[in-house]
């Protein structure tokens, strides 16, 4: 790790004051499970690290007057998992359980999970986030959707698809009392040049809270295709949130894929298939197919198209209360 200075503020305002407006100069440190490794490998080299774990307001889970649940960005994943408020959002719990490591769950935070850097080995080995070598290189685990630009990596967050499917928002805090509420769906972006972040935050803004709107009768699920046990990232994943009418017909649906594109991938096509229909295996399969209809696999990752399709199908089946038929 490069030498840096360390600050451990106690309030949100102090955090903002400690952040630099210049990219790369300061980093937010929460659980450290991603950042510390990146700093050790000199991929991330800030001048100052701002530890947000001692800010009490970022460490609680609360119900807001409108029935939303607010989760502080520095709440650890195991605390999210154990909290009764989250019981009604199984998609979130399934995603956290997928991170099958007690250490990562105890140490990692929800904010950190959403803001983690891509687990792309070109990036992690120092070749940059947008290495031109990816297209014809070792891209087995790279993007199959949204990969026409320079970004071929996949967004690594395992919880973001569920958050998006549930219409969650992020409370973003910045200088001069700037407070914004950003839908998670609008938080991520695909960078076009090296140095650009994978989200819309300014360097001196940070995510303070994750806001889950009331469940309002929706059902939801996350399904990950995982090669094996452990914290390793899934090969493909999907989250679905479904709103049924009184007759088992899908009134509305959100389907979001993970690990397949530089951003969590919102599939309008899959949602369109579901709306107005009754969920069964065939419909879920059709929705899965629709979700990958525009896939453009790279030289080594054609297989991920099938996995993404299955992930969508199984997430929908789970959300509708069915068995997946697979592992």
């Amino acid at each position: 790790m490069k030498a840096f200075e360390y600050a451990s503020p106690r309030t949100e305002a102090e955090i903002v004051d400690l952040l630099s407006a210049e990219p790369g100069k300061t980093e937010i440190l929460a659980g450290g499970t991603d950042l510390v490794g990146l700093m050790k490998k000199m991929i991330v080299t800030p001048d100052r690290v701002v530890n947000i774990m001692d800010v009490p307001t970022l460490r609680s889970i609360d119900e807001l007057p409108d029935g939303s649940v607010s989760i502080g960005a520095a709440v650890t994943l195991d605390d999210v998992l154990a909290h009764p408020y989250i019981d009604i959002y199984p998609a979130i719990k399934q995603a956290i359980r997928g991170i099958s490591s007690m250490q990562l769950q105890a140490q990692g935070t929800l904010g950190g999970e959403v803001c983690q850097r891509p687990r792309c080995w070109f990036y992690r080995n120092g070749d940059g986030l947008l290495s031109p070598d990816v297209a014809e290189g070792a891209n087995e685990f790279h993007a199959i959707l949204g990969n026409s630009g320079p970004a071929k990596f996949v967004n690594s967050s395992r919880i973001a698809p569920a958050l998006i499917a549930l219409d969650a928002q992020l409370r973003v805090v910045g200088p001069e009392e700037d407070e914004q509420f950003v839908p998670v769906a609008a938080f991520f972006r695909s960078p076009h040049r090296e140095g650009q972040r994978e989200h819309v935050l300014e360097p001196n803004q940070f995510v303070s809270h994750i806001l889950l709107p009331p469940i309002e009768g929706r059902t939801c699920a996350t399904y990950e295709v995982r090669h094996g046990e452990g914290p390793d990232y899934p090969l493909a994943a999907a989250a679905a949130a479904l709103q049924f009418d009184g007759f088992g017909i899908v009134r509305d649906a959100n389907v979001v894929l993970g690990q397949v594109a530089p951003m969590p991938w919102i599939s309008q096509e899959a949602a369109d298939v579901l709306r107005g229909r009754k969920v069964d295996e065939a419909l879920a399969e059709t929705a899965g197919q629709a979700a990958v209809s525009r896939a453009t696999p790279l030289s080594q990752n054609e297989f991920k198209v099938q996995l993404a399709k299955v992930a969508v199908k199984r997430a929908i089946l789970l959300a509708a209360g069915y068995e997946t038929g697979g592992f």
């Binding site: 949100e12 305002a13 102090e14 004051d17 409108d66 409370r171 009392e177 809270h209």
Partner: peptide, 23 residues
């Protein structure tokens, strides 16, 4: 999804301001 803007109430603005002068 992408065009939903919203504003949430319920955050304690005092928390936010508190400590501003500490630095």
């Amino acid at each position: 999804l992408k065009n939903k803007a919203a504003r949430k109430s319920g955050f304690n603005r005092r928390d936010f301001f508190r400590g501003s002068g500490a630095i």
